[in-house]
Write a protein that binds this DNA or RNA. Structure first.
Length: 406
DNA sequence: GAGAACTTTCCTGATT
DNA sequence: AAATCAGGAAAGTTCT
């Protein structure tokens, strides 16, 4: 891995801004770019570098992953940004801060809200949608209301949220970069020998942002594949980002995240999907009824359905990071595994966000929760609304069991 | 290809 | 009245 990653480095410097560290320490790797002595990068600069590197990786799609790992990257400044622009999942609006959005991103974003809110798009003037991210970010609430009518309020609120979400700056993009990198080139993570579990530590040493170390980086590729229930697992993707914390969340055989999953607690391996990038993968579940009203304005759906944790794991992970869940849920009785939804719809929306399903709501989420009763992942708590209890086939939530350190 | 596992969606009816 | 709960049914994907 070190050899591989060092191809990205020009040349190594002492002040590492980003680094990958194996749990055993055997494979400590600098992942860095040239930095003048005494110079501290702004997060945006750092992100820009990494974003460019990201593009450099993706701008040579004809290379095999192996080739890409053995050949130095093109000079970053020569990255061909536009060549793959329209096909990259990483370029979707939900992967970028609003001020980096393109006109296309903005159209997709608006379409998303049109669809989600069942807004009558016929009242919209497409010319109103033609602006870039910086322009959009400068629009006032009134301006948005003026341009988009009643949809403007929704757009304004979401824009506020997105701005806040990316408020830590472009370091989130940095994290996204790694996700993108590993998604595209999982071989980078193939390390022979040593422990089978590695930490991925992506840090900004000044701000601490993304300093979320988890013992659950799953090595991909040359580990012996074992079973997978076939649903939520998968190679790392941007959706590995914890949607609550914004922190990187990877999975390993040893992590609580992989324990107690529904098929005999075996989510250990994450085989590559069988579909290819050219294939359309539909979202799991019963398709929504056709809504012809929004058809014209509907944004093209993402190419891949989201993979990540199971719902109950998602819920559990919110609970075990109470400082980061913004009051979404709380433990009623941690020892017994009893918990309560405080903001049920917000949790559902987060789940939907994770699954790229804008129509998720608490009603649907709760239906999925109820299915867990039969499988003893959850137990009923009679007479108490919004209260559930982890069952004996769940794991990773008990205090002594939580291996995720934050 | 069959079947299992799992989630999503829709639905009806009951309860709080 | 609205939110929530309960659970049947159908439909879809991905896996073994």
């Amino acid at each position: 891995m070190a050899d591989t990653l060092q191809h990205f480095c020009v040349p190594p410097v002492r002040h590492k801004q980003l680094r990958l560290i194996s749990q055993s320490g055997l494979f400590a790797v600098c992942f860095c770019f040239e930095q003048k002595p005494g110079e501290m990068w702004e997060s945006s600069e750092l992100s820009s570098i990494l974003t460019n590197a990201n593009w450099a990786v993706y701008s040579t799609p004809e290379l095999t992953a192996a080739e890409s790992c053995t050949e130095p990257l093109l000079p970053l400044a020569n990255s061909h940004f536009s060549s793959v622009y329209t096909v990259l999942e990483t370029e979707k609006w939900y992967h970028k801060p609003p001020h980096h959005w393109t006109k296309g991103n903005i159209l997709e974003w608006i379409s998303h809200h049109v669809e989600e809110s069942q807004f009558d798009a016929s009242s919209l003037d497409l010319a109103s949608c033609s602006m870039d991210g910086p322009t959009l970010c400068q629009l006032s609430r009134d301006a948005l209301l003026s341009l988009f009518g009643s949809l403007g309020e929704r757009l304004f609120q979401n824009l506020l949220e997105l701005k806040a979400q990316y408020g830590e700056g472009d370091l989130k993009m940095t994290c996204d970069f790694f996700n993108s990198l590993f998604e595209g080139y999982p071989e980078i993570l193939n390390v022979s020998g040593g422990d089978s579990s590695y930490d991925l530590l992506i840090t900004d040493e000044r701000s601490g942002f993304c300093s979320y170390t988890q013992n659950d980086l799953k090595l991909l590729g040359d580990m012996t594949p074992s079973s997978d229930n076939g649903y939520e697992s998968g190679r790392m993707s941007p959706d590995s980002l914890n949607s609550v914390t914004g922190a990187l969340s990877f999975r390993s055989p040893n992590s609580p995240s992989s324990l107690g999953s529904d098929s005999d607690q075996d989510l250990t391996e994450e085989p590559m999907p069988r579909y290819t990038e050219g294939e359309l993968k539909r979202r799991r579940g019963r398709p929504k009824k056709h809504n012809p009203g929004s058809e014209l304005f509907r944004a093209k759906k993402r190419k891949y359905a989201v993979r990540g944790t199971h719902l109950w794991e998602f819920i559990r992970d919110i609970l075990i990071h109470p400082e980061q869940n913004s009051g979404l849920m709380k433990w009623e009785d941690r020892r017994e595994g009893v918990f309560k939804f405080l903001k049920s719809e917000a949790v559902a929306k987060l789940w939907g966000q994770k699954k790229r399903n804008s129509s998720m709501n608490y009603e649907k989420l709760s239906r999925a929760m109820r299915y867990y009763y039969k499988r003893q992942i959850l137990e009923r708590v009679d007479g108490r609304r919004l209260v559930y209890k982890f069952g004996k086939r769940s794991s990773g939530w008990r205090e002594g069991e939580v291996g995720l350190s934050v």
